[in-house]
Amino acid sequence: MSDAAARYRAMLRIRRFEETILDKFPTGVFHGTTHTYIGQEANAVGILDHIREGDSVFSNHRCHGHFLAYGGDMRGLFAELMGKATGICGGRGGSQHIHWRRFYSNGVLGSAIPVATGMGLAGRLRGDDDIVVVFMGDGAMGEGVIYEALNMAALWRAPVLYVVENNRIAQTTPIALAMAGTIPGRFEGFGVPALAIASSDVDEISLAASKAIAEVRDGGTPQALVIDTNRFAPHSKGDDTRSQEAIEALWATSCPIEIHASRLDPNQREELAAEVAEEVSQAFAAALADPEPDVEVGAA
């Protein structure tokens, strides 16, 4: 499969997965909450294209897209959201707390940033050239521990790529009400170079990410990649306070899948769409049929 087709397919897998979550949530098959990645798919796909075995990824509450782009199993993720025994974490973590291989996520904003920094530092102390990619949103930038971590990352040259997916809205609060200064300025203040890009084009994001990751890996230093992006769906589900017109305008101008679609011929798009629809529907059905976890009293 060509790179263009692979990226299209990867974004479509995330899109259809998340749509299924939102579509099926009201039926009660999922337990808990969710934060969907619809509109931001190009970030995960464009960035995680460039990681390799040995690298680690730390994600946040909006982690499904990162996980699927990392190579995570779709049925396992559905099952985790359903709280099934076959979930990636056996139903302990749910939507926001998942781990597989070297992928981790934590739902507390900012909390994982020093942890990811320590993972990067561990690689440098061991003398390998593995790196860490850690995702955060603009909302997390309000958490002070991030700045403690950036200071140490720069001091100790931790090979970490700090990705800020700036969708300019934290739950319902627009960035103008919550952030003074700029996001790149926050990194540059600690001597961490920040590459800023406003794009929903997976190819542009991939190119920027490849540069930033090369700096991290070859230079052995922390870098930031700040992406102005758009969240089309609610923060969680049914909690969007934006106007319908505003959301429609985002769809019209910045859908990563639409932007990328022109690079594929229509037949191929249709084939990929059918293939992905089938995969998602099978993964969902399989997870639904999976068993509930065994209940251990005082599970430890």
């Binding site: 981790y104 920094t117 320590g118 993972m119 561990a122 690689g123 102390l125 521990v145 200071n151 140490m152």
Partner: peptide, 26 residues
């Protein structure tokens, strides 16, 4: 000397960093 790291005054930050070290096998 290579295994003792003096830190900035950032308790939450360096406990988080240490957690990352521990998750990485140190």
């Amino acid at each position: 000397p290579d295994r003792v790291i003096t830190t900035p005054v950032s308790e939450a930050g360096f406990v988080g960093v240490a957690t990352g070290l521990a998750l990485s096998g140190l």
